[in-house]
Design a protein around this nucleic acid. Structure first.
Lengths: 331, 331
DNA sequence: CTCCCATTTGGGAGCGCTCCCAAACTGGGA
DNA sequence: TCCCAGTTTGGGAGCGCTCCCAAATGGGAG
């Protein structure tokens, strides 16, 4: 019996006070006399008391945990440095709260239901969700369950959900303007999939600067798709001298094809990517790329969620964070 | 009152059975008549009942969750594809259990204590921990708290803790043999730090094949250290025609130095790295590298932990998973 | 010295579940 | 018909905590 972990009553007995006083000390109430507080803290220390999260949750009806949902196989996402940054930002913002973070991966649409079942009040107090596809029913389901949620990236479906996003259009505008300022005359883009918000926004930003009739080919953000798109551009566009790719992997694929075709980079063709991935640092030449302030995005997501948990209404306006161009050798 | 979430009693009343029967159905007991089970399932469905994790934990004394602890800023770790693989492996292995994964980053040694306090029975049932440094007190602390734990990578301190590791020595042997089979006569290695287990094991594997008097220079796994080591090797070793580097970044650094010195790769000097990082895919030439089966490692870690949670004793032998050589252009 | 109000304290009630025991069934054999 | 062993069922007890109310305490004013 003495081997079992101490409960709040054990502590109360040891400190010579009542259960209520221990609870007040543990929860930081000010309504406790200094002497009582001291006795309780000493007893906690001696006994190695750790409050039972389960018992507390049962009565407070809070779980003190939030879910971070990653609706992708994760293969691609994890490799992206901005993902690491987001997680770090979230983690840092949570560090001075009581909240724990659940990591929930949704490796396939079939698994969605399993994860969705966990996204309820009995399990978490709120939800953070990364890059979802257009048809993802999860955000709406979470909202329907009455759970606070914050997304990363603008949801393509019409759901009205608070979100944090990088200024995708602005970043694309900046990259394209930069190419223009370099004196490039024939600028093309390798756009991302148009059923994903960043794909749409980056193309939009590109067009605002390059014009609506600038050459466009589409990829799926992957390296191979970038290479394919680059081949199509080379076939189609004469005197091409600059390419803005909507992702770094696509830019790397493009780089490969351009070099294979004998172009010098950046002399013949300048290339700019999007994301600032580490692979881009080791390409030949290193990739110039639009950088997303990932850690700030993670922090902002958490801030928005914490505000909702504190009872504030869900913000109706998204938080948009600025991007910046990271110049390396390819442009 | 009807707005509050249904409890097990609500379900019992709706189904016309007792509380115990609902509990048996929810927990999959076979001792329930088909008609009762059907009625309960129908009631659960109609009411949208979700069992309270807190109430269940309170009585079972299990939390149905495990912690994944990442004792690093995460910057480097997240970028490594093997990290993504491990997480995916864990996630997949957890998918058909009731267990949830709590992600816990330890961005700095100062944060260790905060995380350590959470690693108790009241919070998690078990712990998975990635690449810890030599002086990391966390594993011992977790063991001391009587919590099951499984590490990824052999612990450097003497603690006797179950772990999963890649076959570092075998991978190094394979890489070195491969270079030998290519007909290379003068094979050197850039070894990792000898106060880290993978550094030691990879050097050991190299020596088993290349011999104890083969040239060795040491780095700290980083790119710059690899470049420096390569310079020292070039100074020291005449007619060098192959290098095995104990990490991909070091291999990339070596590649850079070799190219600067006018060597052709792989014609003059063949280079093999270790880890299969994405940056290695985009070097010139792409890096041949020893690949770790990360997803399998994640699965194995989870399997070992689940076995302990099921009451089996902690395994005294580590699980070692095989590596394989991924051939690209540099060797 | 008494009274009164503010501060501090103790502990009952109850959160929703699982465990377990005893009661209520069932059906086959005597 | 009754009995008995096995199966199925209901619900009391209790997990460890917070909430809250009422009681105890303290100190200043009258």
């Amino acid at each position: 019996m003495s081997t079992s972990r101490p409960t709040i009553d054990t502590v109360a007995a040891r400190a010579g006070v009542g259960r209520g006083t221990v609870s007040r000390v543990v929860n930081g109430s000010t309504q406790v006399s200094p002497s009582a507080r001291e006795a309780v803290l000493a007893a906690i220390d001696e006994l190695g008391y750790v409050p039972s999260r389960a018992a507390r949750s049962l009565v407070t009806r809070r779980t003190d945990s939030i879910a971070l949902v990653i609706p992708e196989p994760g293969e691609r996402l994890f490799a992206e440095p901005y993902f690491a940054g987001i997680v770090r930002g979230i983690s840092a913002a949570l560090a001075d709260t009581q909240l724990q973070m659940w990591l929930s991966m949704v490796p396939s649409p079939a698994e969605r239901d399993r994860v969705g079942r966990y996204l309820t009040r009995e399990h978490v107090d709120g939800v953070l969700m990364l890059s979802q596809h257009a048809d993802d029913p999860l955000p709406a389901r979470v909202v329907g369950a009455g759970l606070p949620i914050v997304l990363c990236g603008r949801p393509l479906s019409g759901v009205d959900v608070p979100y944090v996003d990088a200024d995708n259009a602005g970043g694309a505008r900046g990259a394209t303007s930069y190419l223009k300022d370099l004196g490039r005359l024939r600028i093309a883009t390798i756009a991302g999939p148009q059923d994903m918000a960043p794909g749409v926004a980056r193309l939009e930003g590109f067009r605002e600067v390059a014009g609506d009739d600038a050459p466009v080919e589409y990829g799926d953000f992957s390296e191979d798709s970038g290479a394919d798109a680059m081949r199509r551009l080379l076939d189609r566009v004469a005197e091409l001298d600059a390419v803005f790719a909507a992702s770094d992997p696509m830019a790397l694929g493009a780089l490969r094809v351009l070099k294979e075709s004998g172009r010098r980079i950046p002399d013949d063709v300048a290339v700019v990517g999007f994301d600032g991935s580490p692979a881009g640092r080791h390409s030949e030449p290193p990739l110039t790329s639009v950088h997303q302030p990932a850690e700030a995005m993670g922090r902002e997501m958490t801030r928005l969620l914490l505000a909702q948990l504190a009872g504030e209404p869900a913000p109706s306006e998204p938080v948009i964070v600025e991007t910046h161009l990271e110049r390396r050798g390819s442009a």
